[in-house]
Write a protein that binds this DNA or RNA. Structure first.
Lengths: 187, 187
DNA sequence: CCCGCAGGTCAAGTAACTTAACTAATATGA
DNA sequence: TCATATTAGTTAAGTTACTTGACCTGCGGG
C-alpha cells in the first residue's frame, strides 16, 4: 500500500508514550535537553548516533528498529507479525505483543495479540483515556477491571472504558493469547 | 459489573472527547466558564439543572443518560452473546453478527464476530468514516479493500481505513468466523 | 436585615510540549 | 590560515489545554 518508512520521530514518540514517559523524564534519563527531544520527535533535528543510542536504550528499542520499513499492509499473515517483548518497556512479566497494526501513528485503533505465559500479566493497574475490547483466543485469563475480577476462558470476550483501572494475569498452565483492540492509541 | 454508576464528570468528559471538543470550545457553546467545566468534569462542583441541560444538549447526550447505570457487562461469555442476523440491516447473504459490545451508544468501539457461511459475505462495497481491524478466527476469507483482493486464512489479520471501499466473502467450504472491530460506531 | 451557601466567574497556576535564539565544536574552502 | 558554514546540541520563553483558588452574587431562612 505504502512503501515508505515512518519518520523516526514518530516511532520515538510512540516508544516513549508506551513507556509512559514525559519528555522531561526521558531527557533526564538520557541526559539531554527536553527541547532537543521535542524537536527530535517532530523530526526537526537529527541526533548524533551516540545520543540516539542512549535514547533507544532507555526506550527499550533499537536504532535499527527505527529504520525498518514497517509498511502499512492491509493484511498481516499469521506468523509474520512483529512480536514485541513487553517486559522491555512495560514492567509486566511474560507478556509479548503481536502487533496487528504496525504502528499506531495516525490511527484511531491499536490492535495486538497479547501472548501471556503462565503466571504472566500486566503490571500494576493502568488507567487512561479510551476504550478496549478483547477476545480470548486460547488459554484462560484473570481480568481485573475497576476492582472486579473476571475469569475468562477461550472464546470469552470483554469490553470496558480505559479509565477504569484494569490489569490481567494468566493463572493457567498454558500460554494465553488475547486479541486486544483499543482506541485511541494516542494515550 | 460493578454496581455504581460512573461519576458524571467522567461521562461528561467522555462525551466531550468523543465530540473532539476542548473545554474552551464547550464553554463557549454552552456559555459558561471553562474553569467551571473543568471542575465539573473532575466532580468538584455540582451544576444547576439549567446549565447541565445546556451542556448535554451541546454534547448530544441527555441528563438521564448521565445517571443511568450503564456499567455494561465487562465480560461476555462464549455462546451467550447476542447473535444478529445481518441480512436484516446489511444486505449480505449468510452473515450473522455476534456482538461483543452490547450497544454502541456512547462508545468509540464496535466489536463483533462475523459468522459467514460458505458463499456468504457482505454485499456491494461499503465505505464510511473510521477504521477497522479484524482477525480470522477460523475458515478462509476473501477480503477486498480499495480494489485489492486478499485471501486470508485462520490467524491472519487485517486493518484499513473505512473510507476505502471494502467488502468480503467466504469462498471456503466451511463457516468462517472473523473477529471484527471498528471505530467509531456512530457518526 | 444579615447570614450562609449554592452556583457560578475570573484570573492565576500548572503540566507538558514547542520554538526561537543562541553556542560550541567541527568541517570546508580561498 | 583564517573566515565561514554546518552540525548538534542548550536555554529559556511561548503555547496549549486544563486546573485551582479567590472572589462574587442572588436567594431562602432566622
Amino acid at each position: 500500500m505504502n512503501d515508505s518508512t515512518l519518520p523516526i520521530g514518530v516511532k520515538l514518540r510512540h516508544a516513549r508514550k508506551v513507556k509512559g514517559l514525559r519528555l522531561a523524564d526521558l531527557a533526564k534519563q538520557v541526559e539531554c535537553s527536553e527541547g532537543f527531544l521535542s524537536k527530535l520527535e517532530n523530526d526537526k533535528v537529527k541526533p548524533s548516533l551516540q545520543l540516539l543510542h542512549r535514547i533507544v536504550g532507555v526506550l527499550g528499542t533499537s536504532i535499527s528498529a527505527l529504520f525498518i520499513d514497517n509498511e502499512q499492509a492491509v493484511v498481516a499473515r499469521a506468523g509474520t507479525r512483529p512480536v514485541i517483548q513487553v517486559s522491555a518497556f512495560r514492567p509486566g512479566e511474560g507478556v509479548r505483543l503481536e502487533s496487528l497494526i504496525p504502528n499506531s501513528d495516525g490511527h484511531l485503533l491499536y490492535g495486538a495479540i497479547h501472548i501471556v505465559s503462565p503466571g504472566g500479566g500486566s503490571s500494576g493497574p493502568i488507567t487512561h483515556e479510551g476504550e478496549e475490547v478483547g477476545f480470548v483466543l486460547e488459554g484462560v485469563l484473570e481480568l481485573k477491571v475497576d476492582g472486579e475480577v473476571y475469569h475468562l476462558e477461550q472464546g470469552d470476550s470483554f469490553h470496558f472504558f480505559s479509565h477504569l483501572p484494569h490489569g490481567y494475569r494468566n493463572l493457567g498452565k498454558v500460554v494465553t493469547r488475547i486479541l486486544w483492540v483499543n482506541t485511541p492509541p494516542t494515550f
